[in-house]
Simulated scan of single mutants.
Amino acid sequence: MTSAPQSPLDAIFAALADPTRRAILTMLLEDDMAVTDVAAPFAMSLAAISKHLAVLAEAGLIAQEKRGRVKWCKLEPEAMRAAAVWMRGFGQVDPIDLDAFERFLESELSQPPAD
């Protein structure tokens, strides 16, 4: 059985569902980063981080580019617009405040991971 193609909104919410990917987005709020620098704080292989980055890139939440031998990642904040518009449709979500979103992500990351 073949699965139906994922909508852009589904891809964004699926990408945001993982705490590692949310942590990566928080890191990229500060500045563009090399893939090896993104991987440094995590206790997982570079291949595993690369898979997380691929999910974020496929959802349009980050962009990746090669500069010389180094692959760089940068946040694409406009990609969250579709998710924000969808949530606002329920009338219970204020317009997206990236500063508040960053504080939320930082508080999430300060909690020990659930194993």
Rank of each mutant, 00 (worst) to 15 (best):
T20S: 06
L61I: 02
L105M: 15
T2F: 13
E108W: 07
E76Y: 07
E78T: 10
P41D: 07
A34C: 00
P77M: 00
P41Y: 11
L56Y: 02
A43V: 10
M27H: 10
A100W: 10
A84V: 05
C73S: 02
E106Y: 12
L9H: 06
V70P: 12
S3H: 11
L28H: 03
G89P: 05
A48H: 02
A47Y: 08
R21A: 01
G89Q: 06
Q6K: 09
L25Y: 04
E65A: 14
S110I: 10
G68I: 10
Q92D: 12
D32N: 09
Q6V: 04
D31N: 08
F90I: 04
L29E: 08
D37E: 15
F13A: 14
P8G: 13
L98D: 01
L28Q: 03
D94N: 13
T20G: 01
L105C: 13
D99A: 15
S50K: 13
M33I: 02
D115V: 08
V55D: 10
A43I: 08
R88L: 12
A47D: 12
D18G: 05
A47Q: 10
E30K: 08
P19D: 00
E65C: 07
F42S: 04
A59T: 04
A23S: 03
D32G: 04
A59K: 02
M27P: 04
P5M: 11
L109F: 11
S110M: 11
R81V: 07
T36R: 12
M87E: 15
I96C: 00
V93T: 13
A23N: 04
A40I: 00
A43T: 08
Q92A: 15
F42K: 14
L16A: 03
E106W: 15
E102C: 06
K71H: 12
A11C: 12
P95N: 03
S45V: 00
I12R: 09
I24D: 00
Q92G: 14
L61D: 02
E76K: 07
L28A: 00
P41C: 06
M87G: 09
I96W: 08
A82W: 06
L61Y: 03
G60E: 06
A15E: 07
A15M: 08
R22L: 00
A15H: 07
R81A: 05
A34G: 03
A54E: 10
Q64Y: 04
A15W: 01
K66N: 10
A34N: 00
A79H: 11
E58A: 13
S107K: 15
A82R: 15
Q111R: 12
A15S: 15
A11R: 14
E76D: 13
D99H: 15
A34H: 03
D37S: 15
A82F: 08
A17N: 04
I96H: 04
